[in-house]
Amino acid sequence: MIHDPTLRDGQHAVRHRLGLAELRRYAEAADAARIPVVEVGHGNGLGASSLQVGQAAVGDEEMLATVREALRHSRMGVFMLPGWGTSDDLRRAMAHGVDVFRVGVHATEASLAERHLGVLRDAGAEAHCVLMMSHMAAPEELAEQAVRAVGYGAQAVGIMDSAGHFLPADVTARIGAIVEAVDAVPVIFHGHNNLGMAVANSVAAADAGALIIDGCARGFGAGAGNTQLEVLVPVLERSGYATGIDLYALLDAADLAERELMPAPPVTASMSIVSGLAGVFSGFKHRVVELSAAAGVDPRDVFFELGRRQAIAGQEDLIVDVVAELSSRRTDG
């Protein structure tokens, strides 16, 4: 089953500035292609519009109302991070007819999702839990966290390769461990393309038993982008996994996305390779490049230093410190 976060994760590539007309047109195209779930929102999910990560062009409720109208076959999904969004955001989203809720937590912190998975379970909503920055945890640890998430009420559980750091064997080991640990619910894989491995990693995930695979049109997403959806779907089909998606309509949706959602499709630029190698969330890229340029430091050094400090998604405020420190080191030297 394919899950399409183009209108959510893609927001990172355009600083969360997608307008309602763009959201509507892509949602209609995705619906026509029979993509099972279309996820929408600020890049960091419900309630996350902020100076810390970027303010959205339009509010959560407007986005949900617009996309809801555009979807006749596809189900509508949202994302939320506990500590950013709240239960009130979830309840407002329910009122807008959201079908699938994803609660994201850092790889080792499933217990942060306990409250919100419980709220969703009690409301009878479909709730998934995704473990982000999953390269920072070993397969056994991820499996243990996944079991906890299922215990809290997650009806699907999985991992995000938020930094685009994995090679296929890493994915096989992690998805394999999770599938074995949680046989009752489907397992999710969400890839990023920093090292050019997103589609290969997604096939490895499916081969290891993942049943829900994420992909974005033209790979629309932070840095080097996500798994490219219109490549992923036919590759999965050729590998023997039925997706139920109409190929031509999918290609049309991807063309529309390239034309209307993004200034240019993501490329694996040098800085994205560095962030993938450093294991740092791709969403940090804009601020790293901007602040490094202003301070006259090498943004590649900034990424490797952020990786050394194990910066997790949401800690964008650390960039300022790292840039200042590298800048003062340079002056001192």
Partner: peptide
């Protein structure tokens, strides 16, 4: 106003910090 909380498992652990953004 907006308030956000991150919980970081970094090793060694990060010192408690608060970023105040003001427009």
């Amino acid at each position: 106003v907006k308030a956000i909380l991150n919980i970081s498992p970094a090793v060694p652990p990060a010192t408690f910090r608060t970023a105040v953004h003001a427009r």
